[in-house]
């Protein structure tokens, strides 16, 4: 299925100036951190990127990103969520806003800030006050009923990523059911079926993100022209 089917998916509000803020949410173990690592690995050569992590115990995901050396330490910021990761990205986003503001202050040239939520459940979603667009990551091993069950992440995210497609035969999951169920509840918003293990460059997600960045730049008042070299794959 195509990534960009349907009408203009850019219904989100565009903030004035600054980097594109991308929320990455999804259940525990679905591959959020692996996706963040993949995006950094693929894009950090041509874009200025920073990451905010929201882990249960603060630094687990940040440490993973550091160990894998996908970004310099100072571009990764970990926030505490007070035992409540969902609150920190939706109901009271203060700690995350502070982390984003600090990164923007430190790196004036930032193109993209990735905000990775703590592993939560299917009802998690990001506040528009915190991110411009959001990705929701589910995985095939979580069961092929997940897209049908829906929830704000599955139905409302700007991009739904179904990860670990390579595991489908092993867990008896039907990929066609997953994508058609997702299409049914997502009203034309894109779905990317990936295997971050087999495609560590996260090709379809990178393409989506670059298109969103271009849109963000074009619609951001007072922003610098899109001088950074970024060719579409």
């Amino acid at each position: 299925m195509g990534l960009f089917h349907g009408d203009d998916p850019h219904a989100h509000t565009v903030r004035t100036g600054g980097p594109l803020r991308v929320g990455i949410g999804g259940p525990v173990g679905s591959g959020k951190t692996a996706l963040v690592a993949a995006l950094c690995r693929t894009l950090s050569g041509r874009l200025s990127i920073a990451v905010v992590t929201n882990d249960i115990y603060t630094t687990e995901d940040a440490e993973f990103l550091r160990r894998n050396a996908v970004l310099p330490d100072e571009r990764i910021s970990a926030v505490q969520t007070g035992c409540c990761p969902h609150t920190a990205i939706r109901d009271d986003i203060t700690a995350n806003l502070d982390a984003v503001d600090d990164l923007v202050e430190r790196f004036a040239d930032l193109d993209v800030v990735l905000v990775e939520s703590g592993g939560d459940n299917l009802t998690a979603s990001f506040s528009k006050g915190l991110v411009d667009v959001q990705v929701f990551v589910v995985d095939v091993a979580g069961g092929d009923k997940v897209p049908r069950k829906g929830g704000p992440g599955v139905t409302g995210a700007d991009l739904l990523v179904i990860n670990k497609r390579d595991l489908a035969p092993l867990v008896g999951a039907d990929l066609d059911v997953m994508t058609s169920d997702a299409d049914r509840v997502r009203e034309g918003r894109p779905v990317a079926l990936v295997s971050l293990r087999e495609d560590p460059a996260a090709g379809p997600v990178v393409d989506w993100l670059l298109a969103e960045l271009e849109h963000h730049r074009a619609h951001t008042a007072g922003a610098a022209p899109a001088a950074a070299p970024h060719a579409h794959a």
Binding site: V79, Q80, T81, G82, C84, T87, A88, D91, D92, I93, T94, A95, D98
Partner: peptide, 11 residues
Amino acid sequence: QRLPSGGHVHS
């Protein structure tokens, strides 16, 4: 406490 000023992450 629902006032969104960041208090919920402090114990």
